[in-house]
């Protein structure tokens, strides 16, 4: 039975749209406006047209940061999404035992973002950290301050620790909603576990998975708090991501350039999200 058509339902959206207008639409329009100005104080701004945009896009630093952010997202997605889906599939046959696992993976989600880095740095501290002392004892030299590869490993590890739970929860919600007879029928037909996943489960969780991919993409692409607290973009800018550059502009009070940068970052994120949704919907119609 489909829902009745009623434009009166718009009235029910008024409170939500009012709030979103104030906290999201107006600020976005304001950033757009700032990005064409040179701003000294909020009352002293000069129109300079797209000058900031040309300056930023001619800056090789910007493209390097863009590359680093894209690489980081790629690494994070290719680790967390398959791992999360696999864990969710393993949890399927566990019945009530799935609940403690869900609680376990949800734990890192309630840690304050600035303490994610704090907890990991303490853990690997060679003086009083459990992992740090173990590594010293085993003779492993882990130097996240000055070795770029180690900084990357640490940020990826901390990010996976932080967000794996979200992937598991959303993927589990998807696969647990598939009626059991579907799988049983496939098993009777002699389908392998891989075939059941490819032809029965995967098509039914694409909705949940696209949300996971989108959320994890934006949050990893614009990672700030963890990356900044771990090594502030170093060593030698090896972990300077887009958001760290943006925050540096805000910190140095060059608001016009910060706004232009914010606009560029937002447009990149939106373009990727839009392309992703388009690809998915053409795939569905075929």
């Amino acid at each position: 039975m489909s829902n009745p058509h009623s434009n009166g339902a718009w009235l029910l959206l008024v409170p939500a749209l009012g709030i979103m207008g104030f906290v999201a639409v107006i600020p976005l329009v304001a950033v757009f406006n700032f990005s064409f100005h040179d701003i000294f104080t909020i009352d002293e701004a000069y129109w300079i047209g797209p000058e900031w945009f040309t300056e930023i896009t001619r800056d090789p630093q910007f493209w390097a940061s863009l590359g680093r952010s894209a690489l980081f997202s790629l690494i994070v997605l290719s680790i967390q999404v398959p791992l999360g889906v696999w864990l969710a599939l393993l949890m399927l046959k566990m019945g009530r035992m799935a609940v403690p696992v869900l609680m376990l993976v949800a734990l890192p989600l309630v840690v304050p973002w600035n303490m994610i880095a704090g907890m990991w740095l303490t853990l690997i501290n060679p003086e009083h950290g459990l992992a740090g002392r173990a590594m010293t004892a085993l003779g492993i030299a882990f130097d996240y301050k000055f070795t770029a590869l180690h900084t990357w490993v640490l940020i990826v590890l901390a990010d996976t620790w932080h967000w794996l739970g979200l992937v598991v929860i959303l993927a589990y919600a998807g696969v647990a909603a598939i009626p059991e007879p579907y799988r049983q029928a496939a098993a009777i037909d002699g389908a392998s576990r891989l075939a059941v996943f490819r032809y029965i489960e995967l098509p039914r969780i694409t909705g949940a998975l696209s949300i996971v991919l989108l959320l994890r993409f934006v949050d990893s692409f614009m990672i700030y708090t963890e990356a900044f607290s771990i090594n502030a973009g170093g060593p030698n800018n090896a972990t300077t991501f887009l958001s760290l550059e943006l925050a540096a502009d805000i910190g140095s009070y060059t608001y016009g350039r910060a706004a232009a940068r914010a606009m560029l970052d937002f447009l990149i994120v939106l373009t990727v999200a839009w392309a992703f949704i388009r690809i998915r919907s053409t795939g569905k119609h075929q």
């Binding site: 906290v23 999201a24 107006i26 600020p27 976005l28 304001a30 950033v31 700032f34 989108l214 959320l215 934006v218 692409f221 614009m222 700030y224 958001s243 943006l246 925050a247 805000i250 608001y255 910060a258 706004a259 914010a262 606009m263 970052d265 937002f266 994120v269 939106l270 999200a273």
Partner: peptide, 10 residues
């Protein structure tokens, strides 16, 4: 999907 850093200034 808007990154918080983008909104912080305005």
């Amino acid at each position: 999907l808007t990154p918080p850093v983008v909104l912080s200034l305005p």
